[in-house]
Simulated assay, not measured.
Amino acid sequence: MILCARRASGHPAHTGVLYSDPVTLTAPPRLLLVHAHPDDETLTTGGTIARYAAHGVHVTVVTCTLGEEGEVIPEGLQGLAVDHADQLGGYRVGELRSACAALGVADHRFLGGMGRWRDSGMAGVDANKHPRALVAGDPEEQVASLEAVVREVRPQVVVTYGPDGGYGHPDHVRAHEITAEAVRRVGGVDRFFHTVASRAATNTGVGALRDVPGLPYRLPEPDELPVVDDGVITTAVDVSGHLPAKLSALRAHATQVSVWQDGSGVASYALSNGIAQPVLGHEYYVLADGDPTGVEQDLFGGLFGGREADAQGAR
């Protein structure tokens, strides 16, 4: 058994041991990710999920809404959209289940239960005022629901978006707010990360697509994709060995994502806007809270007395 002292603040006294509660060396590390809609878990963190899950990390994903307001790409499924049958949310539950299976997610939850909160749509639209819209809901109820999950799962690492939600979507912003508050209330989380996109890596990836023949999407204009300056990035997780799983999960979200690969293995995807996005070999994070020692390439780096999360999870 290993015991770890906790400071009164709730943050760990950095003794190089695993967790405050008695655990065995073979207990898997625990990673909790909070996302706004089905497909967000794959788009921004799919490679990370697949990497850690493959090495035995217990991965929990919380999705805040069913994504009811999403635009639908396949012509044959247009009738699901909010301005038709308004059945998209239920359909996306199935897509999410398939994506989680592809990524190896051990534990998936909907915030407050399936259907409790509805996709709010983009800022300033009527959907923001729906009585079940996430942004119209009681933040206290939402925080309490997530707090219960954090207390149950006891993750060492929690991931969600930054304060701007990554690109300003109201549900992403609310997901950040409730996650930050739940983590603060519970305490005992060793690290809290924001998922971000690297400007340099995105530009390089887009550049590599310029000369690819047959790309069915238009290339983005400069700074059209949401990115951050690389100087703020603390962690680059190598997911190159898990891109097949990420691509499978992207394909599972067929109402929202179109995936293209050529014969040489070059891959790209696009959302309903038809803008090409590169499939990168790393996913990027900003450490918002916790000890930065060892985080450069591993969300769990340095938390296990010198062993990386991959090795710990594979024991």
Rank of each mutant, 00 (worst) to 15 (best):
G168Q: 00
G205M: 05
D190T: 02
H37G: 13
A288M: 06
A54L: 03
D211W: 04
H242A: 10
M114V: 12
S198M: 09
D126L: 14
A245V: 08
M114T: 14
G104E: 09
P220F: 04
H11D: 15
A201P: 00
V279K: 03
C100P: 01
V150W: 10
H253L: 12
Y91A: 15
E41H: 07
P226A: 14
E140R: 13
D21P: 07
L96G: 11
A249L: 06
R92E: 05
V228F: 10
Y52E: 11
D86W: 05
A208G: 06
M114L: 15
H84E: 13
Q156D: 02
V257S: 03
V266N: 00
Y167Q: 09
G168M: 00
T160F: 02
G94V: 06
N128Q: 14
L225G: 03
R7W: 07
V259Y: 01
Y161P: 10
Q297L: 01
I49N: 10
V159N: 08
A136W: 04
G205C: 01
L209V: 09
C4T: 15
R116K: 12
V135G: 11
D230N: 12
A50L: 06
E69D: 06
V34L: 13
A182F: 04
C64K: 01
G205K: 01
Y284C: 05
P38V: 03
R199K: 06
L3K: 09
L80D: 03
G214R: 07
G290E: 07
P213I: 05
A8T: 14
N203L: 05
G67D: 13
G207D: 13
G263L: 03
A81Y: 00
T65A: 07
P131G: 02
L271W: 11
V266P: 00
D119P: 10
P226I: 09
D211V: 06
S98E: 14
L299P: 00
L88C: 11
V72D: 00
H172T: 10
S98H: 10
T63P: 05
H176M: 06
R51G: 04
H194Y: 15
Q277N: 14
H242C: 04
P226E: 11
T204A: 15
G165N: 03
V61P: 00
A309D: 00
L271E: 09
V93M: 03
L43K: 01
R30E: 15
T235Q: 08
Q256S: 01
E75A: 15
T235P: 06
G187I: 03
V23K: 14
L103E: 05
L18D: 15
V17P: 00
D262E: 08
N128S: 06
T15L: 15
R174E: 10
A54W: 01
H84L: 12
D291W: 12
L96M: 14
V158D: 10
R184L: 10
S9F: 03
P155T: 07
E75T: 13
V266Y: 00
A314S: 15
T15A: 08
L77N: 03
D190W: 12
V257W: 04
V150A: 09
G281V: 02
G115V: 05
L146D: 07
L3C: 05
P131M: 05
G10T: 04
E75R: 14
L96Q: 14
K246M: 01
G306E: 11
